[in-house]
Design a protein around this nucleic acid. Structure first.
Length: 514
RNA sequence: GGCGCGGUAGCCAAGCGGUUAGGCAACGGUUUGCAAAACCGUCACACGUCGGUUCGAAUCCGAUCCGCGCCUCCA
């Protein structure tokens, strides 16, 4: 089997080759969202890195089991639901559906399993019981029949190994939650008791709800076993969430340590130099982006930067009041460019032409360039998912595709070249789709992309295709009559609306800007 | 205070000891009635600052200045 990708491991702080626990099979777990609200752009970015890994591994022929959880039981969900007079699980279910659909739209594969806390309470209780039995956790009775369970942090010697923190320094920081029931301020809740009238589940400790960290420990190992290969999530989860997961799982099953071999963490999406987050109130939702940009453009935008670094997501208010996302706009122009190459190349592929047995050196050049670009992109992805370099390889092929179409148009009287160019187009198309597929781009047909971006841009600019077509007809008539003054005036008028006219022979077409 | 990340040409962003990153913008060209799109070329011997190691440093080491994140719920 081909060598597997290398990944940066937060645990060792270096890039290392992925060595599966079980040969030929890789388990990936990604910490999904707490679904008390619609997803923001940062959530979309977090789903990307594990998706790229899964795509690359599958392209290499590796069997992958990909699990991404949904936290549908949480105090925030309870608060939001109470505020809006909705059942907590109805709220989280509604939000989970939006999350799933929007993340899928950004080109992320559906996970093989999408476990929810509400459906894994028995597994959670199992691991908590095990921790209590091993004296790594203790039960505190708050009221008759109402009990909390806490994890005893100091009972786990490896605590801090992921985040490189020392237990005593954490205490000195004094920013830990004080709670009279805890034996040690560092201890965290595994199970939170709840009175009978409150949202909860029955457990060996009475009614209550699971703590945040324990759910992931329970669900990741339930689906992937312990140890498993890759655990992913946002950088803010390193401490305390992932540190606590490690402590719980490794304390529960010390002979099956580590919990996960590689811990991969994606960087943040910043807005105006600040981390985008709900608590800061500066978030842009995925829905906000989809209003203005194509989902593929959002993905392309994420791919321009390395997943571990921060990415600047800026918004700008135009004079006409429209809010735009310049970075995503630029990415969308790149998608336009790539999709238009695909469209033009598709138009060149002629199934009725027999591919010449011997291709000239010019066309062999296209084949070689295509093969080279794919190799470069794959090598880049194997080096800790270097999407920026993979995108450069894709851009090179895109450019080559346009060039091929241009030269075929110039040599259209040369039947031999045209027949061969069809084969050349196939080479370039294959390369582009091969790279695009591993990056999660080109999720729809080029025609569909053109239609949907055009529709959206018309709506954003308050225009209709019919009105533009009418203007264009008027202009075509003027051109036929050699009334270039009028023709140019109409073009200027359309240009002012963001519509560019393209003249080709006797008929004209138009495109609309973002 | 502890842990960690980053400062690369006008902008975004790879590279991380020697050989072109890539994109956007701008400008010139091919093309066009004029344009647009596409392609070609230029801007680009750029790498926060100061020292050091080296035949050679954006890349390694030290110091220093900025910016940011985590240490409390967060992707």
């Amino acid at each position: 089997m081909a060598a597997l990708p290398s990944l940066y491991n937060t645990l060792t702080r270096q890039v290392e080759p992925l060595v599966p626990v079980r040969s030929g099979e890789v388990g990936v777990y990604c910490c999904g969202p707490t679904v008390y609200d619609v997803p923001h752009a940062g959530h979309a970015r977090a789903a990307l890195a594990p998706d790229l890994l899964v795509r690359r591994l599958r392209a290499l022929g590796v069997k992958v089991k990909y699990v991404r959880n949904i936290t549908d039981v949480d105090d925030k969900i309870l608060e939001r639901a109470a505020r809006d007079g909705e059942e907590p699980l109805a709220l989280s279910n509604r939000m989970a559906t939006i999350y799933r659909e929007q993340i899928r739209a950004t080109g992320c594969l559906a996970p093989d399993h999408e476990p929810r806390v509400s459906e894994h309470v028995p597994q959670i209780c199992d691991i908590v019981q095990r921790l209590v039995a091993r004296n790594a956790a203790y039960v505190v009775e708050l009221a008759p029949g109402v009990r909390d369970v806490y994890f005893a942090v100091r009972s786990f010697p490896g605590y801090g190994k992921l985040s490189r923190r020392k237990v005593d320094e954490l205490v000195a920081g004094a920013r830990v939650e004080t709670n009279a029931h805890k034996r040690d301020p560092l201890d965290f809740a595994l199970w939170k008791g709840a009175p009978a009238h409150e949202w909860g589940w029955e457990s060996p400790w009475g009614r209550g709800r699971p703590g945040w960290h324990i759910e992931c420990s329970a669900m990741c190992t339930h689906y992937l076993g312990q140890p498993f290969d890759v655990h992913a999530g946002g950088m803010d989860l390193i401490f305390p969430h992932h540190e606590n997961e490690i402590a719980q799982s490794e304390a529960a099953y010390p002979d099956q340590a580590p919990l996960a071999r590689i811990w991969m963490h994606n960087g943040f999406l910043n807005i105006d130099k600040e981390k985008m987050s709900k608590s800061l109130g500066n978030f842009v939702t995925v829905g906000d982006v989809f209003e203005r940009n194509d989902p593929e453009a959002l993905r392309y935008f994420f791919l321009t930067a390395h997943y571990r670094g921060p990415i600047q997501f800026d918004s700008e208010k135009l004079a006409d009041g429209r809010v735009v996302f310049p970075g995503v706009d630029e990415a969308e122009r790149r998608m336009d460019h790539a999709f238009s190459a695909l469209l033009r190349l598709n138009g060149m592929v002629n199934p009725n032409l027999t591919v010449p047995a011997k291709l000239g050196p010019e066309l062999l050049g296209y084949r070689d360039a295509s093969v080279r670009a794919v190799k470069e992109a794959e090598a880049a992805l194997d080096d800790d998912l270097n999407t920026s370099v993979a995108l450069a390889a894709l851009a090179e092929l895109t450019r080559l595709g346009h060039e091929l179409v241009d030269s075929a148009a110039k040599k259209k009287k040369d039947a031999g070249f045209v027949a061969g160019a069809s084969a050349g187009a196939q080479f370039v198309l294959t390369g582009m789709y091969r790279i695009g597929g591993q990056l999660g781009l080109f999720q729809c047909e080029p025609e569909a992309y053109r239609t949907r971006t055009r529709t959206r841009r018309l709506r954003l600019r308050g225009l209709t295709a019919a009105a533009i077509d009418a203007k264009l007809e008027e202009r075509t008539a003027a051109r036929k009559a050699k009334d270039f003054a009028k023709s140019d005036a109409i073009r200027a008028e359309l240009a002012a609306l963001g519509v560019a006219v393209h003249d080709g022979g006797d008929k004209s077409d138009w495109t609309i800007e973002q």
